[in-house]
């Protein structure tokens, strides 16, 4: 067990510009940046297709191809094309985050009961009002589910930013590997794992806040929940 903890619990590694707090800020910064860009691109696309019910086939196909795209391949390719910097890891992480966000918005909004949408149209709501006041709130569980799954994947994968010279917890993994310093490598890996679990817990809490209480899943007797 000492192999796993000797580096991690050494106070020397917890301060300064290469210390754990500084690396944590970097790691979260890459994660947040990639997620925000992915939401800005993926959410409107998914929402539009879900609302108009047109282009679903193309959207699902595109999401599947993006999902299969190897993140490390994108990362190294963008470095060769655009040079070292923030762009390659953010591009790779954004492409990783778009499919779940887009699919969540599309599936969520597409699955809102047609009677609910018709009723909204019947009482005179405009298409815009229907989307923002009826479809998006009703689709929130699936929309947020997509964002949550994207966030988890990005937090886990932001580790690779360090491979192309940036910071984040991946720094410890790749520096440890290069220096044959296993405790440092393992320390970095444990930090990423703990961060992923914490992000998941926080997002589960946030989900409770943003999803209307009327939409909480009802537990049926062992069946699949909707």
């Amino acid at each position: 067990m000492n192999l796993l903890t000797s580096w991690l619990f050494d106070p020397a590694n917890w301060s300064g510009s290469t210390g754990v707090p500084a690396r944590l800020v970097e790691h979260l910064w890459y994660t947040a940046l990639a997620l925000v860009i992915a939401v800005v691109i993926g959410f409107p696309l998914g929402a539009m297709v879900g609302h108009t019910k047109r282009g679903g086939f193309v959207l699902v196909g595109a999401a599947n191809v993006l999902r299969a795209l190897p993140t490390v391949g994108v990362l190294t390719l963008v470095v060769l094309l655009a040079g070292i910097g923030l762009i390659p890891p953010i591009a790779a992480l954004t492409l990783l985050a778009i499919p779940p966000i887009m699919a969540g918005a599309y599936a969520g909004i597409g699955a809102v009961e047609p009677v609910v949408v018709d009723a909204a149209r019947g009482v005179g709501m405009t298409e815009r009002e229907i989307l923002f006041q009826v479809e998006i709130p009703n689709a929130m569980p699936l929309i947020f589910g997509g964002v949550r799954s994207a966030a988890l994947q990005v937090v886990a994968t932001a580790t690779i930013a360090a491979y192309v010279g940036l910071g984040g917890f991946g720094r410890y993994v790749f520096d440890g590997l290069a220096l044959h310093d296993y405790p440092q490598m393992a320390g970095g890996a444990i930090l990423v794992a703990v961060l992923a679990v914490l992000v998941e817990l926080v997002l589960t809490g946030v989900q409770r806040l943003v999803v209307s209480p009327g939409l909480r899943p009802v537990r049926t007797s062992g069946g699949i929940q909707r």
Binding site: L4, A156, V173, G188, V192
Partner: peptide
């Protein structure tokens, strides 16, 4: 738990 982390640990 991220896969890369588990592979390392």
């Amino acid at each position: 738990i991220p896969s890369l982390a588990l592979i390392v640990i």
